[in-house]
Design a binder for these strands. Sequence first.
DNA 1: GCGAGGCGTTGACACAGTGTCAATAACTGT
DNA 2: ACAGTTATTGACACTGTGTCAACGCCTCGC
Lengths: 215, 215
Amino acid sequence: MNYIAERRQEEKDRRRTEILDAAEAVAASEGFDALTMDQVARRARISRALLYVYFQDRDDLHFGLCERALALLQSRFEAAATRRGTGLQKIVAIGRAYVAFAAEFPVHFAALASFQAHEAGSEPGTGNVAACFAAGEKVHQTMFAVIEAGQRDGSIATSAGSPVAIAMTLWAFIHGTIQLISTKGGLLGEYGLNAKALVDQALKIAADGLSPTRH
Amino acid sequence: MNYIAERRQEEKDRRRTEILDAAEAVAASEGFDALTMDQVARRARISRALLYVYFQDRDDLHFGLCERALALLQSRFEAAATRRGTGLQKIVAIGRAYVAFAAEFPVHFAALASFQAHEAGSEPGTGNVAACFAAGEKVHQTMFAVIEAGQRDGSIATSAGSPVAIAMTLWAFIHGTIQLISTKGGLLGEYGLNAKALVDQALKIAADGLSPTRH
DNA sequence: GCGAGGCGTTGACACAGTGTCAATAACTGT
DNA sequence: ACAGTTATTGACACTGTGTCAACGCCTCGC
């Protein structure tokens, strides 16, 4: 009957999320890079071989984690984007949301960072890779819309460039800043700096660079 | 005699640079992440075991490559910093120098990127790690000096923050931008963007954010 | 010249992790 | 009860890492 297939699909989905939960737990305790298939399988209480039924390989599992992270991030971005204020204020709020996200879910941020750091061979429309790119696309769209609104309400200079280009640039800026802080945080102290001050700095410069006051 | 020790040291140094050359060659042809000790050893025409005499482990070799990359980058930064112009113009020139560096030596940039992306456990003053951090420090000092000059000649707002903080922020900005372009370059086309336009965009926003025109 | 001791060099080993496959176990419909 | 599908696994082959005892070679004191 059809009931069966449906139930099986549900069980498959639940198992899949269990595996991702396990992977997050392992990444949280052992560090993201030092995550092995064996640890994940044991944590999820299945054999390693079965893990390969649900995820094609290590990278595929990785993309699964990224998709989760991006979905979570997107909800934060949307929350930031729906607050009152100018487009510029909203985009700054989005930047702060990314910082807060990275602080709250370091594992998810690590997943995104290594996703960002590695080459993206032309994506095959299938599997978790596609889902991951789609999730990233949604995040990007959110930023895009806010920037466009900012240019319409006059808080962001149109001379700063097209919304797409600005979105990319800002993403690179804020991601680079968080990455620097999270990996080299220890060295900051030697210069008498702290994370919050650097973030404020970065957001201020970026916001001033977007503002149309000049010219 | 002392001659002997000296000659042996020189041979050791030369062998060391040969190994690094081999590592660069392998990284260039096989990709940076997919670099194995075996490939490097074979390219340098020594046994894998001997490789471990010169470099403690894979990471140590990696730090050796980073040190080279940073030294090279530093010479480019200094060249950019000695050109005529305001501090702001110089810091923009440094940004462009980093972009040019990444385009000209993708392997070196990849080394720096993965160095930047991974955690830096409190450094032990010994070995290549220390040398790598020292080289990074010199690069940072170059930026620092230019920014300070910019604030003195009035081309960079003092309200933008302390020179150290600005240097860190700008490094994060430009590095993040190059990283985005080099790993996700393929997707740029889908948005009608190209690398050069994005770089110009990023530098413009950053420069406008630093400029004191606004108050 | 020559033997002892240090230095450079290596092959071989133990280990850890990945991805695959044939075989087994569990379930479903007739 | 049985045949057919689906889920699950242990065992295997492979790749890469890091270590070690051993071997050869140079050099220096005699």
